[in-house]
Nucleic acid binder design. Structure first.
Lengths: 188, 188
DNA sequence: CGGTTTCTTGATTGGGATCAATAGGAGTGG
DNA sequence: CCACTCCTATTGATCCCAATCAAGAAACCG
């Protein structure tokens, strides 16, 4: 964070968390990234990065010097288009998080979080039904706008209800349809 | 929302709200836009718009056909750069809302909201210290992730504390430094 | 005007935060 | 291999902020 923006970073493998620090020292996890995600798009506007990103396991990234990308994109329209799509997708992704934080309760948030992780692991060729969480309960809570105790409690509740299996950081999705139901529960 | 993406829209004057509808009918205000803001960037990725935007007063927008913009930007590097900045700024803006929703209490949210509005009115050449809210309490609440009663209560509280003057939709900022203090209150 | 929407304010409730104590790993060094 | 420490997770008890329920009041509008 604060470093001059020069490159984008495409995740080739591994797992990352990004967090932003605010005025008075409060900071918040804004994203978990894995294979295929592009990091650093936020830096283009003010020429400086606005968040820190840390690898949570051994990882590989491909640094893409932005100036070079621009030149190349000027020659190759399909690359330009793909770059614009990536930015737009980032906007849409954050829109989803805004929705989560603005109008879902604790259970709904965690259900959405798990389903989202599951889907992304599947997209990267891993199992969608069991995986190892790379982040702590506190980091999950920070991302979801809740406290680590709440995260822990709801994991336990989901387990009691047979929706998931939890053993520390090892998670099994036992009833993804059930999680969908929790997430979409009509709370009006 | 759902319409095919063809154009961006630059706000020339007026005031807008954008809202997204979710699975089960819940919807949420995701943005208030005014002069200088660009609408529609979210549509690039999936070729369809993902939110509705409604004018809250007589307004003017300039529709910018995206295909044409791309051609022009290909010729004019500075335009291309400005376009990228606009997208990146949108990402950063949403990051700010995520932070607001994820780690601020009701008073802090409303203080931030008012200061943000004030700053943007000033940037558009209007008074930063008094303005007319175009949206209802319910819409403010939806944007800030709280209920309309809470918004109303906190307006009253701020007024009692001499931070602002409230008369329905007419707002006067009496002590912006005080609002800053409320917003940045060290709540750890 | 009467009807409707929006806003304010009070009383009560409830979900998640906070405080607190314990347990479980993981890593280190003996 | 065990003893020790540190970090992380779980679970219980209590508290508090904002949601909910409810009733008026104020503004807007045809």
């Amino acid at each position: 964070m604060g470093d001059r923006f020069t490159s984008l970073y495409a995740v080739r493998s591994g797992f990352f968390k990004s967090s932003g620090l605010r005025d008075n020292g409060r900071d918040q996890v804004t994203r978990f990234s894995m294979t295929g995600d592009v990091l650093g798009l936020d830096g283009i506007g003010q020429e400086h990065h606005i968040c820190n990103t840390v690898a949570l396991e051994d990882s590989d990234v491909c640094a893409i010097p932005f100036a070079g990308l621009q030149e190349l994109a000027h020659e190759i329209p399909s690359l330009q288009r793909e770059f614009h799509r990536a930015m737009s997708r980032e906007i849409v992704r954050e829109r989803g998080v805004m929705f989560l934080l603005g109008s879902m309760n604790a259970e709904e948030r965690l259900a959405m979080f798990l389903l989202n992780l599951s889907r992304r692991f599947a997209a990267s060729g891993y199992s969608s039904s069991e995986f190892h969480l790379r982040m702590t309960r506190e980091e999950i809570g920070s991302y979801l706008g809740q406290k680590l105790e709440t995260v822990s409690r709801i994991f336990s509740r989901f387990q009691q209800e047979g929706l998931i299996g939890v053993q520390q950081k090892y998670i099994r999705i036992l009833d993804s349809a059930g999680l969908e139901r929790v997430m979409a529960r009509d709370s009006d």
